[in-house]
Design a binder for these strands. Sequence first.
DNA 1: GATATTATGACAAACGTTTGTGGAAAGATG
DNA 2: CATCTTTCCACAAACGTTTGTCATAATATC
Lengths: 330, 330
Amino acid sequence: MVTIKDIARRAGVSPSVVSRALNNKYGVKESTKELIEAIAKEMNYYPNAAARRLVTRKSGMIGVMMADISEPFYAQIIKGMEYVANQTGYTLLFSNSYDNLEKTDVLQKMIVAENVDGLVIVGSNVQDKNFTWLLRKKKIPFVLIERNLDDENVNCIWIDNKKGAYLATKFLFEKGHREIAHITGNLQNQVTMERLAGYKTAISEFGLSDPDRRVFHGNYVCQDGYQAMQDILNIHPDCTGVFVANDSMAYGALQAIHEAGLVVPRDFAVIGFDDLEFSAFTNPPLTTVRQPRYDMGKKSMEILTRILQGEENNGINLCLPFELIIRNSA
Amino acid sequence: MVTIKDIARRAGVSPSVVSRALNNKYGVKESTKELIEAIAKEMNYYPNAAARRLVTRKSGMIGVMMADISEPFYAQIIKGMEYVANQTGYTLLFSNSYDNLEKTDVLQKMIVAENVDGLVIVGSNVQDKNFTWLLRKKKIPFVLIERNLDDENVNCIWIDNKKGAYLATKFLFEKGHREIAHITGNLQNQVTMERLAGYKTAISEFGLSDPDRRVFHGNYVCQDGYQAMQDILNIHPDCTGVFVANDSMAYGALQAIHEAGLVVPRDFAVIGFDDLEFSAFTNPPLTTVRQPRYDMGKKSMEILTRILQGEENNGINLCLPFELIIRNSA
DNA sequence: GATATTATGACAAACGTTTGTGGAAAGATG
DNA sequence: CATCTTTCCACAAACGTTTGTCATAATATC
């Protein structure tokens, strides 16, 4: 391993000068700085991250917590975050919070063992006061994606799920559907509840039948949408449209409808939520509510880095626009 | 920050004893060990990773390089890797090698700055001797996924792409298709060439027309499959089947066929490669060659950890089985 | 040319661990 | 009781940086 001392020896200076030179600090002659840089490059020197972190008490890492990194929903968010992380030199450290129990320990490790400089948490339930308390005590900035807390000390990036769900349902109504079902996600999830609320508001507003009657539950995966859709077709043969809480479940619903011998959108209308990459390629292409996922990731990192550089304070609350993408499934 | 010294003071022992106690090392009395553990827990102690890494010269991290973490292809691989990483306590450090230029620098950082204990590289072209040289010199074990080098010092996990492609093409032939096209991936990629070779072998063997005539190129994304399929339909109206080098492009192909007013599989047969989660939900569900992606990820980490624990040597060459998944698109 | 000022670099401490070495206390053996 | 082991723990060095302080050399000022 080539260290700062090796370079110092070769350059005939002390290690501290090398450190200052390589970090563009004040107090080293231009010519020796150039010499040192040349030697460092020639010797293929990279500063040891552990040593640097130990003394600076900064890790140069941003922790990213999500339910399950392999969910396609997160792909664009990650890409957005990486885009700015690459520019600013931060390293992203991912961690899955499959269930909430684990989360606390994973978080602790990220915060106190790995010493992350900042944190972005997407879609988790952070009622847990312990958690924000720790972060605040250690003054670690964090931003929540898919959450809208009205705490003016926490940064949030979100979309208006209720309105999105409302408009999706309304779209079905305007297409002439009167018996509209809804497949929800996990009921512990705040987003689920917001979308459900938007659906119910629309149903009530249009004077349709009891809003609770046609609500079916899933957990945001294809298979659940498939199952729920089969139930809907069995229990409510008069149904002609469904608003599905996310695209993955909508895929399953499309298949169930198809297998029942019905044709979308002629016999049954489906509208999803998220606009995953793949939704343009379903058969028929899925009408859905687009979330600006790439932007969500990008903004989250931008906010974080600005706070870390002292250019901005906590308390950003960013509501991003969604967009109704009309394709052929409704 | 609560350090080992704080615990030592509270327990009335020296820091070294605390370290040994917490790491289950020989030489500390059972009762004091229990005392120390209790205090550590009460004070919510987590060892500082930077300090530990600095002295042990081990990072507890495994670097993972892939072209683009947001590609759905990698999701299950990642999940497999995480499954064993969670058990063994390693942390995964991801990095994208969008293009090969960057790769070297990213790798250098991973290896010499972050000090990763091991590396898994999926799908990259590692002809680059510089690269393996550095890893070997530093004795960092690594495993290549989707590669089959006959260097007996490097660990490889792969599937027989040529055979898979051959069987996929053969399947179309047996279904009665005589004019079979192929949409390839990026031609710089070894996997692409293997699948192309399998296709050509089949075409030649069955005495079909010049194998090169119906080969079209894409770059593994939906849009390319869509485009290539349109070209096929225009240029070769006699074509009735296509073997597509991966599922993403097959999705695009399905859509192009559908938009041309043709029905799959009645008018045109499509067979893909990979078996992404989503392929069961296309319309019609996609017939494809399944790669055991979860297993690939899992095995890669298992091999790595065994090597790191000295239980095994380099030179593992693991050929995993693929499987022809017959659905309704062919 | 003497003094004041600035530019440059050397020195050493610190970050929080791990680990080799040695020493004291406790126990075993005769 | 003397000696030999063993058990347990304290001490100190080391890992590769960064950074505050101080010394010297170079330059400027009069």
